[in-house]
Simulated assay, not measured.
Amino acid sequence: MSNPATVIAAGGVVWRESHGSRQVLLVHRPRYDDWSLPKGKLNPREHVLVAARREIEEETGQQVILGPSLGIQRYDVRKNGGTAPKLVHYWAASLAGPEQEFEPNDEVDKLEWLPVDQAQERLSYPRDVDILNCLDAVLPVESTVVVVRHAAAVKRKEWSGKDIVRPLTDDGAATAERLSEVLAALGVNRLHSSNAERCVRTVTPYAASIGRQIHLHPEISEQGYEKDPSALETVVAKAWRPGKVTLICSHRPVLPGLAKALGLPVGKYATGAFLVAHRLADGRVIHERFGAP
């Protein structure tokens, strides 16, 4: 008999500053009569960041923006008459706007904002306390940068026009649409891109959804970078903007140099893959890499 498939879930620690101290939001689940962190299972083909935001918002009624990772829980759950491994990914989550009114439901009937020390006592599971205890190490965030390689484009050998206008494939366009949901979960509010069509179209669905302009930079196109590799410093100088979440979309040959200039790890990016980096107030930079959504 084969082993049950791993259950993947996602959630977060929703936090706020109130009267000079940090509070976190806990949920009470009547089915289990427990106090826990908001979380839930991924939908089919759902990106883990999108799932984390959706589950937090469904369980708490609060709109949030995801910040740094807080780690992964690993434990077994009952499934189909047996047990299966479960992985739960957590992120710090800040309110995206004013606190919303909560309506109790069958899944969550009560919410409570508590100071961290009281939340540690209230939580029903030690594993949730372990996640909560990671919060101080990743806050406050000073600025965030998301570096993405454009989605899949028509192959060079199949394109007779200028390379700068080579378009996305249908699959690439679908990736760009899914990426829009990911960028929304991260709260991206500044958009910078190579001026190549394949980069611009990767970012366009999200730009349209928030009504923001895409700032185009020939210096991080393949041709611009080949002509003058040092020119990308003009983009890097604008990247770490305090209080902002900045997206930079570029190309495989450019990304290693761009990452190095940003102080990020240099590595390979598949089409549509991205890296999320947070610069903390103490000067540290922490990051996560993700495949294409």
Rank of each mutant, 00 (worst) to 15 (best):
F290M: 07
S180W: 01
C249S: 14
Q120F: 00
Q62T: 03
E233A: 10
G40M: 13
E121Y: 05
I72C: 04
A93D: 01
P126G: 00
T234P: 09
I8R: 11
T6V: 15
G20K: 08
Q100A: 15
Y225A: 12
G272L: 01
F274G: 03
L26E: 02
D33W: 00
V203G: 01
A119D: 09
H28I: 13
I164V: 09
E197K: 15
V236Y: 08
A137N: 14
S21C: 03
R252W: 08
V154M: 05
R252M: 09
Y90H: 13
A173F: 02
T175E: 13
T169L: 10
R156K: 12
F290A: 08
A9R: 09
P205T: 14
A281K: 14
G283P: 08
A208G: 00
R127N: 10
E99K: 05
K260Y: 06
D76K: 14
A273T: 12
L37A: 08
N80S: 11
K260P: 11
E103I: 12
P293W: 13
M1E: 13
D128M: 12
T169Y: 09
C134M: 10
S94W: 12
A176D: 00
A237P: 11
Q23G: 06
A9C: 03
Y269V: 06
A152L: 12
E177D: 06
L264F: 02
G20F: 04
I220Y: 07
V146N: 06
I131F: 07
W35D: 04
R178D: 05
E177G: 05
T83A: 12
E59T: 03
H278L: 04
H19L: 13
N105Q: 09
R78P: 01
T246L: 10
H19C: 07
V285C: 01
V266I: 15
V48M: 10
L135C: 03
V64L: 08
V14M: 15
R29Y: 06
E197W: 01
H47R: 06
P115S: 05
L66V: 09
R31Q: 14
R198T: 02
A277R: 12
I210T: 09
K268F: 13
S209F: 02
R279F: 11
V235R: 06
K162R: 11
V14S: 12
S180Y: 02
E181D: 15
P85G: 01
H287S: 15
A281R: 13
D117C: 01
T204Q: 10
G71K: 00
K268R: 11
W91E: 07
R156S: 13
T202V: 00
